[in-house]
């Protein structure tokens, strides 16, 4: 009885921490990126809690709805946030199992994220603006080309979850895979995890509209993808859009963070601290790319995505090799 109660309390605690991380922390990491970029450019930059202040300011303001828009435009910001948070509940963060995990949740994860993207695209088409239509067209095209990479990464992760024959029968889920990863997993499956991490990093940059695929700070509408699609949102709607984007970035980063440094500590709090450090380090990586690279020409993006796809495919093949699927062939 006592043991069960303790287990329940612990689970509850873990869930609360994950919800806290997922809901409260995301804007901070955006703030970190902005700050780091400013420092790298030799400016002082805003404090890292600036995004919170921005969100608070936006949510106090009124809204302007275009006469062209209808319900789609009104619901889209809500859908963006809801889908990001739902996806975040499927990814295990900070050393815990995810609140939602079931066999097959990898696919649901990918499609829940796609839901938010679809909502933004539709909302931007609803405004009837040519610029927003342009952003929507680009987003839809590049996202479609990135999907195969995403799924191959998921296949590779799923295989990893089944790699150890002693744990055979675990569910095909993100938690099932990531919860059983240890640092030693890198010693066994490092050759597969290396390209996987690269591919996932490229995907993070694309899905979250970062340099080199998109520039979050550009001022020219013709060069935007994500920013141009939320041009017409204002007030709380804009706050929701920005917040949803921040949550999505955190969700992706925590997935990658868990893969590159899968160590569990004895104490939960150590895990939480490591988690924050991991995400911080990944934010530094994202910033490094933004500082070191310019935005790519649009027609070069498919080539890069194809490269990421090859890396993901390589990771699947190497994962199968490391699992010994090809051993025992007549040599």
């Amino acid at each position: 009885m006592m043991a069960e109660f303790a287990w329940l309390a612990e689970t509850l605690m873990q869930r609360t921490i994950q919800m806290f991380i997922l809901i409260v922390l995301p804007p901070m990491f955006i703030g970190i990126i902005v700050k780091l970029k400013a420092v790298a450019a030799g400016r002082k930059g805003p404090p890292i809690w600036q995004p919170y202040l921005d969100l608070a300011r936006l949510s106090r303001k009124g809204v302007v709805y275009s006469t062209a828009t209808g319900q789609v435009f009104r619901w889209a910001p809500l859908l963006v946030v809801a889908s990001s948070i739902t996806a975040g509940l499927i990814v295990p963060m900070a050393g815990f199992t995810a609140p939602i995990h079931f066999s097959g949740d990898l696919i649901v994860f990918a499609y829940v994220l796609a839901l938010g993207r679809l909502a933004i695209i539709l909302a931007s088409l609803d405004t009837g603006s040519a610029f927003e239509g342009m952003g929507a067209s680009r987003e839809a095209s590049f996202a479609a080309l990135a999907e195969p990479t995403m799924f191959l990464i998921l296949v590779s992760l799923g295989l990893l979850g089944h790699a150890d024959p002693h744990k055979f029968g675990v569910e095909w889920s993100l938690t099932g895979t990531l919860a059983q990863m240890e640092m030693i997993t890198w010693a066994h499956y490092g050759p597969a995890l290396l390209p996987l991490s690269f591919a996932l990093f490229v995907l993070i940059l694309l899905e979250n509209s970062r340099v080199p695929f998109d520039d979050p700070t550009t001022h020219l509408e013709l060069t935007m993808i994500h920013e141009v699609m939320i041009l017409d949102h204002s007030g709380p709607d804009l706050a929701l859009m920005e917040y949803g984007a921040a949550v999505k970035l955190l969700v992706f980063q925590s997935l990658l963070g868990r893969i590159i440094f899968p160590h569990h500590f004895e104490s939960q709090w150590a895990d939480v601290v490591t988690f924050v450090i991991k995400i911080g380090v990944l934010s530094v990586c994202v910033t490094a790319v933004e500082v070191g690279m310019a935005r790519l020409k649009m027609n070069r993006i498919p080539g890069i995505l194809l490269g990421a796809f090859i890396l993901a495919a390589l990771s699947v093949v190497v994962m199968l090799v490391e699992m010994g699927e090809f051993r025992g062939l007549p040599s």
Binding site: A187, H188, Y189, G190, P191, A192, L194, P195, F198, G303, I304, G307, I310, L311, L314, V318, V321, E322
Partner: peptide, 24 residues
């Protein structure tokens, strides 16, 4: 032995990634 084996494999994967980059 496992580590050595994995190190060889990581090297090989790095070679493959360089192959890709050199084309790209």
């Amino acid at each position: 032995e496992v580590l050595l084996h994995e190190f060889i494999d990581i090297l090989l994967v790095a070679v493959l990634i360089l192959d890709l980059l050199i084309v790209a």
